[in-house]
Amino acid sequence: MSRLDILNLSKSFGALQVTDNVTLTVEPGEVHAIIGPNGAGKTTLVAQLSGQLKPDAGTVALDGRDITRLSMPDRVRAGLARSFQITQVLPSFTVLENVALAVQARKGSSFRFFAPVATEAALNDAAMRVLDGSGLTERADVPARALSHGEHRHLELALALATDPRVLLLDEPLAGVGGAEADAFVDRLRAMKGRMTMLLIEHDMDAVFALADRVSVLVNGAIIATGAPEDVRSDPQVRAAYLGEEEEAPAC
């Protein structure tokens, strides 16, 4: 089980401080949720952790190894994967091809020019195992562009899982998913608990409190509180900044 250490991470866009000296440790095997109002800098933080965006200062370490200067593909190979808030798939590839490609990235060289990839059993079998867990088995041969929004979200998660991550960054996995579908998705995420370390960014508070071992609250780029979900929820500073005085805590 792997841990992620974020130390004094800072990032500005011009005069706007989007990440303000963030220090946070995601412990091995825990689900650590980051919540915060819109514009708090959650997605920018994930972008810096995943290597999409360079921080101005500070370090990110995976199991003690400084990965701050690694590119996104190198971080994925080191075991740090992410899912996107806005679904990123390969639209004209089938569902199976999408996932098989993510498997291919960690299985053997991709500088192979002659053997047909479509019939590589090792890739397809590994991809099918990931799809089994995502409820997308029946849709394996459908082009990704033909999926519903909910299925897109499942594929998005499946693609991150197919890279076999030790630490998974989830940027609003439930974005746009509602009702019973959301409950099923939370069940899916809960089933992943303990198999990898997860940093979860999510607006859906029911999901956060159902999944998170610890919660950090990000406001204006800075972390104002970290702790067990119940403690964070009752923190008056957090209530003032984010949850809103009038909101009643949902029963867990």
């Binding site: 990123q88 798939v89 053997a115 890279t163």
Partner: peptide, 28 residues
Amino acid sequence: HRIVASRFGRVLTGIRENPTRMESIGFP
């Protein structure tokens, strides 16, 4: 024809489709 149907070809086509996704599954 062999190249586009190979592992390499699939990566190349994937980059055409969505370079961000390709980076986030480990392909520079």
